[in-house]
Structures are given as C-alpha cells and as structure tokens.
C-alpha cells in the first residue's frame, strides 16, 4: 500500500515537472549560458590556486578557463537544484496538506518528492558535466559528475529547508540567490580562496565540500573521499532540518 502511494505521488510530481515547459527549458539554458559566458570572458592563461581539502600550502597551476568551467558548472548545478527543491516543497504546500487531511502519509509525499528531486539532481549533474567535455576533459570525469551531483544534493537540501521555513516564494528565492551567489558563485572559487581572509567561514558554507570534490577530481590525482563524505553529511543535516519542519507543518493537530 505504501509503495503504491509513493509511486502515485512520484508519478504525479514527475508529470507536473514535465509539464512545466519553462522550467525544463531553463534547466537546459542556464548551464549553457553560464558556460558560454565563461568561455567568452576567460583565457587559457595559467593561474595558481590552493585546494583547501588537500593542503594549505600546495599551489596548483591550471588554465583560468578550465578552472572557471568547473567552478561555474558546480554553481549551475547547485542553483538549479535549489530552485527546483524550493518549488517542489513550496508550490503545492496547501494542496499537499489537503492530501494529508484526506489520508496521505506526509512521509510518502516527501519520499516521492525526494525521489524525483534525486533523479533531477543526477540528471543535472550528468548534463552539466557532459557539457563541460565540449571544452576540456577533466582528469577524473566520473568524480567530477559526482561532485556536481553532490553540489545539487547539498543545495537541493538547502532549497527544501528554505521552502519549509518560508511560505512565500519571494523570501525563498532571495534566500537561495543570496547564499548561492556568495557561496557557490564567489567564495568557493579556489582563486579567491588563495588570498581570502577568515578562510574558516568559506569552509563552513554549503558548496565547500562539493566544490572541493569537483576541483580535486578535475585537476589532481588526490583522494576525494573527505569532501565526498563532507558533502553527504552537510546535505543530510540540511535535509533532516527540512524534514523536521515539514513534518511539524504537515502534522494533523487533532
């Protein structure tokens, strides 16, 4: 019975997503646009940067364009996943609550939404990474895909948390844009990190671990185990916080 209700909710959520043509187009257009801007605004000059998860002293030298492509790929994956998560949790909050009043288990609804979100996050991670192959081949492509997917996971969970806290779209969008711009779109760039003050703050931001996973696997042969685990733990903490608020909001008080 539970599997059937999860499946029904998964099918309906997927149908809703596929019928949102504008969102689907943006899903394809945003990473493309980000990559085009990087290609048009960067050169192949060699730049030096540090990767915090490896060493605070070792400098890596790669092409500015390649470094920027990995950086912006992660930002695109994170941004898209967080907006989709926000939409999933916030758009139909009232109708979902009606479903719960009618008998649906909140856990079944959220499991179905998470399953759809996971599928979309994996798709975005793969799509953004495959598109990067048009410009250069990273040293460990599969791990770069994983890094992008984890970026989507962490920011997707952040989007869920924001969506459960705020009832209105505007506040949610502002929270996502603000953090994603500062974190994934600026502070996690290893070039900035090289000269940054208070580096500890940067290490506590959501995109830190996924960013390290992608950068380390794209340009070095070092292990990505720590940033991989860090990404999973960070995302899961956000997810648990989101689920606890969702649970309280969906609970029938009778």
């Amino acid at each position: 019975m539970r599997l059937r209700s999860i499946k029904t909710s998964w099918v309906m959520t997927t149908k809703e997503l596929l019928r949102n043509r504008v969102a689907l187009v943006l899903l394809i257009v945003i990473p493309t646009l980000f990559y085009v801007l990087i290609v048009l605004t960067t050169t192949d000059r060699i730049i030096a940067f540090k990767l915090a998860s490896i060493s605070e002293t070792t400098l890596f030298e790669v092409s500015e364009q390649k470094e920027s492509l990995v950086f912006i790929g992660l930002a695109a994956a994170g941004l898209i996943a967080s907006f989709l998560a926000l939409n999933f949790i916030q758009k139909h909050a009232d109708v979902d609550r009606r479903l719960v009043l009618c008998g649906y288990r909140p856990s079944d609804l959220i499991v179905a939404k998470l399953a759809v979100l996971l599928c979309v996050t994996i798709f975005i991670g793969c799509y953004v990474a495959v598109m990067m192959l048009l410009f250069f081949v990273p040293q460990h492509f599969v791990l770069v895909v994983l890094g992008f997917t984890l970026g989507g996971y962490v920011y997707g969970c952040y989007g869920l948390l924001v969506g459960t806290i705020f009832k209105r779209e505007l506040e949610g969008i502002l929270c996502i844009v603000l953090l994603a711009n500062i974190d994934a779109g600026w502070l996690q760039n290893p070039v900035y990190y090289l000269e940054a003050q208070n580096k500890m703050i940067i290490r506590f931001l959501p995109a830190y671990f996924p960013s390290q996973t992608s950068m380390v696997s794209a340009f070095t042969n070092h292990s990505t185990l720590n940033p991989l685990i860090g990404s999973l733990v960070y995302g899961s903490v956000l997810l648990l916080a989101a689920l606890s608020i969702y649970w309280r909001r969906m609970k029938i008080k009778r």
Partner: peptide, 18 residues
Amino acid sequence: QIFETLTVSENFYYFAEA
C-alpha cells in the same frame, strides 16, 4: 486546493489514493 498542472482525472486519482 487542486493540482493545477494535473488533469481533472489525475486530481481525482491522486486524492482517491489518499
């Protein structure tokens, strides 16, 4: 409180499941 991007029939089906 209906799902706008689902058909009438799908709305019925979703709530019937509930």
